[in-house]
Design a protein around this nucleic acid. Structure first.
Length: 474
DNA sequence: AAGCCCCAG
DNA sequence: CATTCTGGGGCTT
């Protein structure tokens, strides 16, 4: 018998972008509402869905189905990202193990909280729907009691999200992630569903096509098709050796397990994002100036995100897709990235780095047509404490005038003794900078070098901590 | 470390 | 107007 010791909630915010817009403007609540990105409706509220509006539906088609459809632009995800983080923060009151999936979903491992409430009479009545036949339940490991308590906690969680953030949600409660995610989507919107372990194989079969299994995407589906497997039932009945014809040993076992609703993967510790990126697929860009303008806009928006995050990036990445009149499916993106060894100093410098990466991918002498352009930052490291970074200095973050001028004086005393152009900085750009700014760049570079070493140590001990706390390696 | 692919919403 | 704008992880070099 597999392990049922955990209790996991999957929480999914109903039609997320649309709900955020309805909170901002309650007049939209009773109108059909679609969120527009470029030429499509990416999501819609439930009023609009009654008209048959679907995810990623082209605007003209949506308007035909529902002439009164109200459209709100949602290409800048900034506000959605903020509300999403508020939800995750709220859930963190229930457990340190909260894992985000996109902006509108969270897994929460509430095993500890459940253990504390076991035996409390108040927590003995199941909340919400149950998938499968409760009477056929036959496991005596205590999972039934834990999941019932889990359903009560899920209801409290959803009440809390509704009260504090005015958002309705769906929840799935199960002993693992995949089952929690699947059952949560059975009753929508604003409902919750629990599944007991013995109903797992039946739930999985009810999905029908293997593509409905979470983590089985297009590529995996095609590989399964190549060995004549299209349904979950067929997958459950196939042998591991058959799967190993097209998958590696590990992946084969993993997929077979998933088909039975078996999933040992852990809910990861809540973490800040590992990267921030922006991209735009507007009209094709054909001149250097157009590309530069795009990068400038991205830089502004990314700087805002990074200031709020508080960490600084080590890597800058440019991504692009060449405009291709060819067929719809493929998304062959090219990326160029490099170490970004200094703190972000200003927009101009970021744009300059982005452009130099751009020219690594695109031949400067040839005409070009860029369909999608993106800019991102990753390898985010904590800022050294105490001293402000150049980044904050130039953006006036938490800086009073006296401190600023003190800092300049400090710098101007020492710049001649110890200052070079740090690796990763354009030598020409560096030479143009005021001497005290050059010094600041160099100091920041040295601090970052030290910070990186610390970060590596911290990562190792973090992993060890997980092992000690959870008894398993992530 | 860089670049691509696959997964998700 | 014709699948958007993200973010995480793995594999190969």
């Amino acid at each position: 018998m597999s392990d049922h010791s955990r209790t996991i909630i999957h929480l999914d915010i109903d039609c997320f972008y649309a709900q955020v817009e309805m909170v901002k403007n309650p007049a939209l609540k009773h109108q059909p509402l679609g969120i527009q990105q470029k030429t499509i409706v990416v999501t819609s509220n439930y009023v609009a869905r009654q008209f048959g509006i679907k995810k990623c539906m082209p605007i003209p088609e949506a308007k035909k189905l529902c002439p009164d459809l109200v459209l709100v632009k949602g290409e800048d995800l900034y506000e959605y990202r903020q509300v999403s983080q508020q939800v995750t923060d709220l859930l963190s009151q229930y457990s340190q193990f909260v894992e985000r999936l996109g902006l509108d979903e969270n897994f929460v491992d509430i095993s500890e909280l459940v253990a504390k409430r076991m035996g409390d009479a108040d927590y003995s009545n199941l909340e919400g729907f149950v998938y499968g036949d409760v009477n056929s339940f036959d496991c005596d490991c205590g999972c039934h009691e834990r999941l019932v308590i889990g359903s009560v906690i899920a209801q409290q969680m959803r009440n809390s999200v509704l009260e504090k953030l005015q958002l309705t949600t769906c929840a799935g409660i199960a002993h693992n992630k995949i089952l929690a995610k699947i059952v949560g989507s059975l009753h929508k919107p604003n409902k919750q569903t629990v599944i007991f372990p013995n109903s797992a194989p039946e739930l999985m079969i009810s999905l029908g096509n293997v593509g409905k299994i979470p983590w089985v995407g297009h590529a995996t589906k095609e590989l399964l098709l190549s060995i004549d497997i299209t349904t979950v039932a067929e997958l459950q009945n196939c042998s591991k050796s058959q799967l190993e014809k097209v998958f590696g040993k590990e992946k084969a076992e993993n997929i077979l397990n998933l088909s039975f609703g078996t999933d040992e993967s852990l809910v990861k510790l809540k973490e800040k994002p590992q990267s921030y990126g922006l991209e735009d697929s507007g009209k094709p860009l054909v001149t250097e100036q157009q590309v530069k303008e795009k990068f400038k806009e991205f830089s502004k928006r990314l700087l805002k995100l990074l200031i709020e995050d508080g960490r600084v990036p080590k890597v800058i990445k440019v991504s692009l897709r060449r405009h291709n009149p060819a067929l719809p499916m493929g998304d062959p993106k090219e990326t160029r990235q490099c170490l970004f060894n200094v703190d972000l100093s200003n927009e101009t410098q970021i744009v300059a780095m982005a452009m130099s990466l751009f020219w690594k991918a695109v031949d400067k002498k040839q005409p070009f047509k860029i369909g999608v352009l993106g800019l991102g930052f990753s390898k985010l490291v904590e800022k050294p404490s105490g001293k402000r970074t150049l980044f904050e200095f130039l953006h006036g973050n938490n800086a009073d005038r006296a401190t600023k001028s003190d800092k300049l004086q400090e710098s101007s005393h020492s710049f001649q003794t110890n200052c070079q152009c740090p690796p990763g900085v354009d030598k020409g750009v560096f030479a143009e900078l005021p001497l005290e700014v050059q010094q600041e760049l160099w100091d920041d570079y040295k601090r970052k070098e030290d910070g990186l070493k610390d970060a590596k140590k911290a990562k190792k001990s973090g992993t060890l901590l997980n092992f000690v706390v959870r008894g398993k390696m992530q």
